[in-house]
């Protein structure tokens, strides 16, 4: 009885009210998160240990242990498909440099700057499926791309078949992807560069810094968060490239990326367990990539007032410490 009274008193107290309010507010977002994100994910992880189709009733699913994971690594078409991501990563790096370059130029006063920004952002607004269809015609023999190249003096007979020739078709697809996402990366950079204090440029110019030095020592360190973000987004994006190969070539002719293969295995062949295992493996790879990038950027950006030291500084300090210890040891021996 007493305890109950205590509970009620607590519930009526300021602390108790605080507790209930917090729970009351959090319960809906938490429930949504758990039900629609973590619960399905846990289910998927569970599926990855079974041999099953979507329609297989629960009691007829066969537990196969790690078999699906072994298959992911053993099968040529599953893990081998990740090789295609290298094409997209090269494209992504190219895209980042290009975007950073254009963004830096466009952040200063340029004639028609807004028009250029608009034109370059425009592809991102088009639906991915539509882009697929546009580029299918773009790359068709004797159509847009071939015509343009002929204008530039190329002999049409020597041009490759952009989507048929397996030596170039993945590059053609990567080109499409760069065309689409370049504008988005650029706009993110422009936004970040705009927020740099203009007084810094003036000060730098007074000190005699040239444009490259301004970029290297003022702009780049100021926007490092956005650079990191963009790199992570584009690496993740290239690991999970899907739209372009799916729409333009339907993953045929050696363009089946990891996601396209996964989709085929899950939906056409109905091997849900194997596809789930592929998804889990990809997730782990993306985790690993993200962590590696974080570590990499920690060392690459030197910032005067950042708490973490640069790699070179750390090396220097370690060296000094070591020397001190050595010296102390020597001293000790002498004594």
């Amino acid at each position: 009885m007493r305890q109950e009274k205590g509970m009620i008193a607590w519930a009526k107290s300021r602390k108790g009210q605080q507790f209930f309010t917090i729970v009351g507010f959090m319960i809906i977002p938490l429930a949504l998160l758990l039900i629609f994100t973590y619960f399905p994910f846990a289910e998927m992880v569970k599926f990855s240990f079974y041999k099953m189709k979507y329609t297989t009733p629960v009691d007829r699913r066969v537990f196969v242990g790690w078999q699906n994971y072994l298959d992911v690594f053993r099968r040529k078409d599953c893990f081998g498909a990740l090789k295609l991501s290298i094409y997209y990563m090269v494209g992504a790096i190219l895209q980042l440099f290009l975007a950073l370059y254009l963004a830096t130029i466009l952040s200063f006063k340029v004639k028609g700057g807004n028009l250029f920004k608009g034109l370059m952002f425009f592809p991102y607004l088009i639906n991915g499926i539509a882009i697929g269809f546009i580029f299918k015609f773009f790359y068709t023999r004797g159509f847009v791309f071939d015509t343009v190249l002929t204008w530039c003096g190329f002999d049409p007979a020597n041009l490759p078949y952009w989507l048929k020739d397996q030596a170039v078709n993945n590059w053609a697809l990567v080109g499409t992807s760069v065309w689409r996402y370049l504008g988005q990366a650029m706009v993110l950079f422009v936004g970040a560069i705009m927020s740099v204090d203009a007084g810094m440029y003036e000060a730098a110019e007074l000190d005699g810094a040239n444009k490259f030095q301004i970029f290297r020592y003022i702009i780049l360190p100021s926007i490092k968060t956005i650079v990191t973000l963009n790199v992570i987004l584009s690496i993740t994006g290239s690991l999970s490239a899907f739209e372009q190969p799916f729409v333009i070539t339907s993953g045929a002719n050696g363009t089946g990326t990891y996601f396209v293969i996964m989709n085929k295995i899950a939906h056409t062949s109905q091997k849900v367990g194997l596809a789930s295992a592929m998804a889990v493996v990809l997730l782990l790879i993306i985790f690993a990539c993200t962590i590696l990038q974080k570590l990499f950027f920690k060392y690459i950006f030197r910032n005067a007032d950042a708490e973490d030291e640069s790699y070179a500084a750390k090396k220097q300090r370690k060296k000094q410490e070591k020397a001190l210890v050595k010296a102390a040891k020597l001293e000790g021996k002498k004594v």
Binding site: K53, S250, G251, A252, N253, G256, K264, I265, T268, S269, Q270, K271
Partner: peptide, 18 residues
């Protein structure tokens, strides 16, 4: 069809493309 991934008469387009 599912086990062999040939998907005969069930959307097995990629094998014929191959």
């Amino acid at each position: 069809n599912s086990d062999s991934e040939l998907n005969i008469n069930a959307g097995g387009n990629d094998k014929i493309q191959a």
